[in-house]
Design a protein around this nucleic acid. Structure first.
Lengths: 271, 271
DNA sequence: CGTCTTGCTGTACGATCGTTCAACAAGGTC
DNA sequence: GACCTTGTTGAACGATCGTACAGCAAGACG
């Protein structure tokens, strides 16, 4: 008889590689089984490892889930940043590249939506998810801010545009700009959501058209800021591109559910 | 010593009342604890009953959850329908009433969003949830369809407008109308989502303004269908209000995540 | 007050959950 | 080939899950 070649029962991997594999298995399980897929045994089976290995690379399950959330989040943001950077320096081309990246894989993926939805459900009750979101969300915010700022060149870059202020007694032009920015962000999210829910309803290119039409209507309703500086100063000095960008990035809640800090969660005795 | 008044240890309730109470407790638990709140013991404690009672009124947990989903779904739709009906017969007033109802409680509620998100996460993997959605979603669809049809009077009500068709070689007017309807729906969902995530960013009344501006741009970009019939026939006969309504109700996926029937879910051996 | 219906309780059960940990072995080093 | 480091295994634990069911009792009825 031939000597039995002692086939290894498992292969050791560097921690970083194994961690990445476990994160990938977590996301895959979420796609397949939804929230029920978030169990140690399901994930370890998907990754082809034993149950104990997860706690060897992650302190606990919540940390693994948060790492998975951080992964898809940063993967998306990095993809968007790369697409915009690849588009060159023309503001219009950069915005178009962003929109086309936004409305194509891997962003525009029904499976991905199913994964996002589970994370959203966890968000309000998991500090780790909140932290992972906050850390990766910043990249998305600054990307949008930069694109809008260069698309609608302002007179002066006022960095101190305070977040959250609502110019109640402002001129109509300012109000329209702020609303338009909010609406644009809603359009991005809403179209993305709708397509993922029912991909047959419209083509991604049509979503890009819709968004560009909205952008065009922005420039049309407030051309004084981008073209004629003198007119802008007359209408309202604070109505600059950076303010629009600020309002927009405030409004653009993107995929992640931000922590609202709203009404204090009732903390009655549970059970 | 005074005779101990034999205080009843529990109070019997008619099945329908108790069922409703259990449904209410389920929603309340979802608001408080998210997905973790969906346990028999948590819900029964919230309702102030024993663990066994739930299975006395519902065959199993999934049926209770589906009933809860059906409840908030139909509650919302009925509220919208009532608001529109209260507005009278003017199409514009009815649309405004709808928008104001959409952008106010109980629709516009961050707690409610947290509940919706959990249901969305369950949708793809629960036939019961899918059925509950399908049954209640019809009311929302017909409400939107009716409002748009009366807002943009068509030449002839073509009921057989097939769902899902995409006039690729159609005239530009038709494409714009379809896209506009899709965009309007995205605007509704996106604004609703954004406000629930970050209520401080804009006021509900501003969201109403945004939507009405979009509606106005609909009438502006394609007035031929609503005003001059002769022009419409020349441009494209199929571009009617009812087609817009059909396209819109296809696009308006509302809150619920529709079953996509997309790629067949990989059914590998689990565990 | 006695009787009957049935809404309701609460223990029990098996399954599965996340986590722990002692033992194993893969694979580099000498 | 012996040794050592450490990635990996898998049984075991207590907690919690959804469900079943035998028995209790609330409250209507005669």
């Amino acid at each position: 008889m031939a000597r039995a070649a002692p086939k290894p029962r498992f292969a050791r991997q560097p921690p970083q590689v194994r961690r990445q594999a476990l994160i990938g298995a977590t996301i895959e399980c979420l796609k397949r089984y939804g929230h029920e897929g978030l169990s140690i045994r399901t994930i370890s089976a998907q990754a082809g490892v034993s149950v104990g290995l997860i706690n060897h690379h992650f302190p606990n399950k919540d940390e693994l889930v948060a790492a998975a959330y951080r992964h898809i989040n940063s993967e998306l943001v990095l993809g968007m940043q790369a697409a915009v950077a690849r588009a060159g320096s023309s503001p219009r081309a950069r915005m178009r590249a962003f929109l086309e990246a936004w409305f194509s894989a891997p962003s525009l993926d029904p499976d991905a939506l199913a994964v996002w939805v589970v994370f959203w459900g966890l968000y309000r009750h998991s500090r780790l998810i909140q932290r992972a979101h906050r850390e990766t969300y910043q990249g998305y915010v600054s990307l949008l801010r930069g694109m809008l700022a260069e698309l609608l060149p302002q007179r002066r870059a006022s960095v101190n545009a305070r977040a959250g202020r609502r110019p109640r007694s402002a001129g109509t032009a300012a109000v329209d700009l702020r609303l338009a920015a909010i609406g644009f962000s809603a359009l991005l999210d809403g179209l993305w959501l709708e397509w993922c829910l029912e991909p047959g309803t419209f083509r991604p290119a049509e979503a890009v058209e819709l968004c560009e039409a909205w952008i065009a209507s922005l420039s049309r309703s407030a051309p004084q800021a981008s073209r004629a500086d003198s007119q802008a100063r007359v209408r309202r000095s604070a109505t600059t591109g950076s303010e629009l960008a600020a309002a927009m990035t405030e409004a653009a809640t993107h995929h992640g559910v931000r922590h609202t800090n709203r009404a204090p969660l009732r903390r009655t005795a549970r059970r």
